[in-house]
């Protein structure tokens, strides 16, 4: 490629682009909206995931032992459970400690000094590796000798998991729809350019330009639409992240938002890649359809 050839190629691309400026801006705008929403969605999902993980991690299974269980037996059961691969940790809570915790929790609500004896049994507190298997672990623990009763926030865990699952699916659907829309609009833009340039294309074909050479300016145009749209979207997201995010963290300080760490530059590059790819694929398909004679 000498400089004259590059200059000729660029001037062809520029002509294409200028031929239908309004439509190009529409295409770029659509990509911008799509990528902003995509970026926002991915970020939200990551944040929710982090918050959810934080909550789920804290979910415990309480195993209450029969009152005739000795400390040694309780420790043996603790060891058994700890050996289970589904179990992250098991904590032994003797009844004296259980009472102290309960007093702390209920302080100011009822007068705990009224308790003359300790009504609580000894207990084990299990944390699981995967919250989705909490039910299995609970069932397993309930079958152990000397176990009186097993409690855990079964409904809460399962509902939370279901919500995340649905959110993920809906989000993916919405994004697929957005990407599809952007692709259609880019592809229409390219088709308009192809139509506006049909004389040039006919002459190129007549004088023996290769198919790739004829396509290239249009592919380039689609790439520019996708790339520019994504670049603007990334700027929008970066500004939002710098201006709005810190305020949100403060406003919602009861949520562990700081847990949602994200690699900004890497994320930006990925979005840029998505935008460019949509532009290239859309234009490739629409030019290909037209040029097949």
């Amino acid at each position: 490629m000498d400089s004259g050839r590059i200059r000729f190629f660029l001037s062809e691309v520029r002509r294409n682009f200028a031929r239908n400026l309004i439509m190009q801006l529409t295409a770029i705008g659509t990509v911008t909206v799509t990528i902003v929403l995509l970026g926002g969605f991915l970020f939200t999902r990551q944040t929710l995931g982090a918050i959810g993980g934080n909550v789920i991690e804290k979910i415990e299974i309480s195993v209450f032992l029969r009152s005739d269980a000795t400390t040694a037996q309780a420790k043996r059961l603790q060891a058994t459970l700890e050996h289970d691969p589904r179990v992250r940790s098991v904590e032994y809570v003797p009844k004296a400690e259980g009472l102290r915790e309960m007093r702390d929790r209920l302080r100011g609500q009822i007068d705990t000094s009224l308790l003359t004896s300790n009504p609580l049994p000894d207990a084990l507190r299990i944390r699981v590796v995967d919250p989705a298997r909490a039910r299995d672990v609970a069932t397993f623990a309930a079958k152990q000798p000397l176990v009186d009763k097993v409690e855990y926030a079964q409904d809460a865990v399962e509902k939370l998991l279901r919500v995340f699952d649905v959110l993920g699916r809906v989000g993916l659907g919405v994004i697929a729809l957005l990407v599809f829309t952007a692709a259609i609009i880019i592809s229409n833009t390219i088709r308009l350019t192809v139509f506006a340039r049909r004389r040039e294309i006919a002459i190129m074909q007549l004088v023996g330009a290769s198919g790739l050479y004829i396509r290239m300016p249009f592919i380039c145009e689609g790439f520019i639409d996708g790339f520019a749209g994504a670049a603007i979207a990334i700027a929008v997201l970066a500004i939002a992240r710098a201006e709005l995010w810190p305020k949100l963290v403060v406003a919602l300080s009861f949520l562990p938002l700081h847990a949602a760490a994200i690699d900004g530059p890497m994320f930006g590059l990925q979005l840029l890649g998505v935008g460019s790819a949509v532009g290239i694929v859309a234009s490739w398909l629409s030019v290909g359809r037209y040029l097949r004679t």
């Binding site: 000498d2 004259g4 050839r5 190129m204 004088v207 290769s210 050479y213 004829i214």
Partner: peptide, 14 residues
Amino acid sequence: AFALQVTGARTKDV
């Protein structure tokens, strides 16, 4: 020149 350029001819040849 267009007929040469779109076949990828070198500027020198154009």
